[in-house]
Nucleic acid binder design. Structure first.
Lengths: 192, 192
DNA sequence: CGTGGCATGTAAGAGGTTACATGATTTC
DNA sequence: GAAATCATGTAACCTCTTACATGCCACG
């Protein structure tokens, strides 16, 4: 149900077309929410009908025309209401954990490859996040900036960084845990 | 799509009724997969029709009769096929992260209470997991067992423990990250 | 002249949530 | 006598995924 609100937040950060939103959901927003373009177009159409977003046709020379969406007053209010509503912590769905428990009834050694594959994907994502952090949130510490010129903090930027740090912490935790799982699997099937 | 397989794994660990499965999904299996009784009954019926599970009516004295499900050969094969199929890492859905980024366009201070509430829920879950670990997987280390009597490792038990350790690592990571988020929010709205 | 990116959609089907429904027994 | 637990289900609705569909432009 929060796809609506995720789109509103993204449009507040920067107005854009359905296509652009879909690309953002593959990147930064995808760290904590996924959506395909089909979902996004459907929700945009509904929110437009409800007056939550405004549309503006943008003709383009070399590329197909697009519709630029921005958040209307009603959308801002809807977002604000949702922000003040308590939400339940999200339900978890870890296919890999099902597989790990299932391995007891199959070949544990065969799972090693799959776990290693997942670990590699998490390592890739971690590298991607860290690169994004370095790019968007500047030099990590002890920077070469002139002392005595503190940059005024931008709340949006700070909060985006905090969310990204969550993604980084998640990937690190997963990599460590999968190390643990691999060690357990090797203990159970030492002949490898 | 993995609900089928999660149910098969659970039934392999121990046969039981739809009601019992629903309770397990509130507890141990719920660490990595959630399902309501409605979903479970629907899937059990379908798997029974497909010959993946066997049913046995169990009359009970003081309580309503129940149907005890167990995994049939075809179900075991289906599970094995799925275990050998590579799967994609699960897509993430973090409502709270949407809220955190949305707070830039609303009152960041108002989010503090919500984040604290979530942190408390994660602390409760962590305590619950740790209690379960102590109960089911024995004394943590340096136990009082007689030396020289190594217990033969039970693969199912070891793998269940590994999955539980993943849940514990996840909750610890979330608690730490929410500390980070709270510090960021306080930095942005110091008048609190 | 084919591949990939930009840009928007429809439709079918699977999966998940919420509400409704029943009925016995045990516990407070 | 009310509430909680055991036990099973139906129905409606919403959401999400997957496949299909179109068309232009840029690049090699």
């Amino acid at each position: 149900m929060a796809l609506d609100h995720a789109i509103l937040v993204s449009l507040l950060e920067k107005p854009g077309s359905g296509y652009e939103l879909a690309r953002r959901f593959e990147r930064s927003i995808g760290y904590f929410w996924t959506a395909t373009h089909q979902q996004i177009y459907r929700v945009l159409k509904r929110m437009e009908a409800d007056g939550w977003v405004d549309v503006r046709g943008v003709p383009q020379r070399t590329r197909p025309d697009k519709k630029e969406y921005s958040v209307a007053a009603a959308g801002r209010e809807a977002l604000s209401r949702w922000l003040h509503d308590p939400i339940e912590p999200e339900s978890v769905r870890h296919d890999l954990a099902v597989k790990i428990r299932g391995a007891a009834f199959d070949d544990p050694a065969a799972l090693v490859r799959e776990v290693e594959r997942h670990q590699r994907m998490h390592q890739d994502r971690l590298a991607h996040y860290l690169a994004g952090e370095a790019r968007d949130f500047g030099p990590p510490a002890g920077a070469t900036g002139a002392p005595g010129s503190p940059v005024p903090p931008d709340p949006g930027r700070e909060l985006q960084h905090a969310v990204l740090r969550g993604g980084i912490a998640y990937e690190r935790m997963m990599i460590d845990w999968l190390d643990d799982v691999l060690a357990t699997l090797h203990r159970l099937a030492p002949g490898r």
